[in-house]
């Protein structure tokens, strides 16, 4: 009987302790995420796939510097050191993030001594929850041919570009469709003043350090004589501070307008060249 009473008393005390413990646990702060629906991270590893811009944006108060380099055709063989002895086209570029969704940039490339300026705005961000299933960005650009002695006035040297980038990441795989339009104020011969294209960009993250990428840029509708759709494949390497892109591409040009207008090599016929992009971000 005494044992029974003691057990009853023990249970009562245990129960009271339990009540107090639960009360104490409830006193903890409820854990809440700062952003309940965060955006998907890293659809692509850089703001350029190879030659085509991606939805990847430059963060606010960050400056992205880019060096882009393409050489001659690989099929030149050892005599041309697989294209590295041939003329290179280099573009140096800077892009500043005024906001996590808005950036502006400027670049200059060897060919045509072309100076281009662009603005990019991310309208939609794909979210982890899927509430926004795609990433959507718009890019506009103006280019100025600064090559001397062509006899062109200022307005004749200008070209304009606009593209819409629609992308989605699915696991480690990302896909982007990029309808685009380019306008050239003055063209030579039978070249088109207006060009339409549909860039396709794909990316596959292998791990945190390496990813593969590919792009294909068919011209839609009328195109310049003797030009072909551009294709390229790349290996991306994230060293922690830099993103290196080592690629083979049919086009030696570095922005979409001139890739559509001037690519005269056929990737599928073995007419491709080695190139690399280097991206480095600085904080301000």
């Amino acid at each position: 009987m005494n044992v029974c009473k003691f057990a009853n008393f023990g249970f009562t005390v245990f129960f009271l302790h339990l009540v107090l413990l639960v009360e104490s646990m409830n006193a903890q702060l409820p854990r809440e995420r700062a952003d309940a629906d965060p955006p998907v991270d890293r659809l692509f590893w850089a703001s350029y796939s190879i030659g085509i811009s991606t939805v990847e944006s430059v963060s606010a108060r960050n400056l992205n510097s880019t060096v882009k380099h393409t050489f001659g055709l690989v099929d030149g063989g050892i005599d041309h050191f697989f294209g590295l002895d041939d003329g290179a086209n280099t573009r140096l570029g800077l892009e500043y993030g005024f906001h996590d969704r808005f950036s502006m940039g400027i670049g200059r490339m060897t060919f045509n001594k072309l100076v281009d300026m662009h603005a990019k705005y991310n309208i939609l961000r794909q979210t982890v929850s899927g509430s926004t299933p795609v990433e959507l960005a718009v890019k506009t650009s103006v280019g100025i041919n600064t090559f001397p002695g062509t006899g062109r006035d200022f307005s004749e040297r200008l070209n304009y570009f606009v593209s819409v980038m629609i992308a989605r990441k699915m696991g480690n795989f990302s896909l982007q469709a990029t309808p685009m339009y380019a306008h050239f104020n003055r063209v030579s011969g039978n070249n088109e003043k207006q060009l339409f294209g549909l860039g396709i960009v794909a990316g596959l993250a292998l791990n945190d350090r390496f990813s593969l990428g590919a792009e294909y840029l068919p011209v839609i509708g009328d195109r310049n004589p003797g030009t072909y759709d551009t294709a390229a494949v790349t290996l991306n390497i994230d060293t922690g501070g830099h993103i290196f892109q080592l690629f083979f591409t049919s086009s030696q040009w570095h922005n979409e307008s001139f890739i559509m207008a001037n690519n005269r090599d056929r990737f599928w016929e073995g007419e491709f060249r080695f190139g690399f992009n280097i991206h480095r971000v600085f904080g301000f």
Binding site: S24, A27, A34, D35, S59, D100, V281, F282, G283
Partner: peptide, 30 residues
């Protein structure tokens, strides 16, 4: 976020780690 309750002798803090910023967006994601 933090809570100090002297009666319960409770000290409770938490941080959403995705709010950490280092000044470079790419490094933050790393």
């Amino acid at each position: 976020h933090g809570l100090i309750d002297f009666d319960e002798n409770l000290v409770d803090f938490y941080l959403d780690l995705s709010t950490l910023k280092s000044g470079i967006g790419r490094r933050d994601r790393d």
